[in-house]
């Protein structure tokens, strides 16, 4: 039997600077060393190990329809500080895939709206890549994404390329900047302005808690039902297997029963998230 606490050996093959400055974000492309990549679904995550520092949970940032594994990492603590020093060729450990994914199979034929803020775009990227790769299975795709400044936007090149290719990508930044051609204002305001139609549509939102909270209200006003709105939660995690108790909300382990939840599930919980 495989030991779920023991990571696969993996190698960093590419490191891309997404955001620089005091709170930098890098995207790591990682390849498993001794085996093929495992099957996974958008929304699932992995625990990335740096022996000597520990493990941290990251949602897989690319779609299973694309090669390798990508993780976007905000430098914030012990493990991430070490990861940010690492270069292509360096070895890390990977445990996964972990957690419950977005039910993309159930969403076939529906329109998809992703609403992201800052680093919260990561799980949404996996979704829109998937939907783009399986275009004929889904209806319209709308990508709404914002950050504090244009320098804080992740996956910029990819998003500008999508705009060029004619995809419906709606970017925003909080305050005006020279040469900024897109919306200025908070993400929920952009949603309010764009008014996605709730009919046969799934909205997935991820970002800072306050953004998610206001976005939820906006979506409800637009007529989205709670079970049409999905998000992914963040909690401190250690084991990733629903054992250590750290990420627990009621009887749910975010690592195993989440991180993906719809709002009907979240509002049924006693402990409000």
């Amino acid at each position: 039997m495989e030991n779920p606490y023991v990571p696969y050996k993996a190698q960093i093959t590419e490191v891309k600077d997404e955001v620089k400055g005091a709170r930098p974000i890098k995207t790591f492309r990682i390849k498993l060393v001794d085996r093929d990549r495992f099957d996974y679904k958008s929304g699932q995550g992995c625990l990335v190990s740096v022996f000597g520092r520990g493990e941290s949970w990251f949602t897989i940032a690319n779609s299973p329809t694309r090669p390798d594994l990508e993780f976007s990492v905000l430098k914030t603590g012990k493990v991430t500080a070490k990861l940010h020093e690492m270069k292509p060729g360096d070895i890390v450990g990977i445990r996964g895939p972990l957690g419950r994914a977005f039910p993309l199979e159930d969403w076939k034929g529906m329109n998809i709206v992703t609403i992201g803020g800052g680093i919260g775009q990561t799980p949404l990227r996996s979704i829109y890549q998937y939907v783009i790769d399986k275009e004929k299975d889904y209806g319209d795709l709308m990508i709404i994404y914002g950050a504090r400044t244009s320098r804080d936007l992740v996956y910029k090149d990819e998003l500008f390329k999508l705009i060029e290719d004619g995809y419906n990508v709606q970017l925003s930044i909080d305050n005006p900047e020279k040469d900024w051609k897109y919306f200025v204002g908070f993400v929920p305001d952009n949603v309010k302005r764009l008014k996605p139609n709730p009919k046969d549509t799934i909205a997935i939102t991820c970002g800072p808690p306050i953004m998610i909270k206001i976005t939820l209200n906006v979506l409800r006003e637009l007529g989205f039902r709670e079970d049409q709105i999905y998000t992914t939660l963040e909690r401190r995690m250690k084991c990733g297997l629903g054992k250590c108790g750290k990420c627990r909300i009621e009887s749910y382990y975010v690592c195993k029963d989440g991180p993906v939840f719809n709002y009907a599930e979240l509002s049924a919980m006693l402990e409000k998230v």
């Binding site: 493990e55 084991c239 250590c244 108790g245 750290k246």
Partner: peptide
């Protein structure tokens, strides 16, 4: 049953 996991030794 709650537990913590951490690395000891760089």
């Amino acid at each position: 049953f709650c537990f913590d996991i951490y690395d000891e030794g760089e």
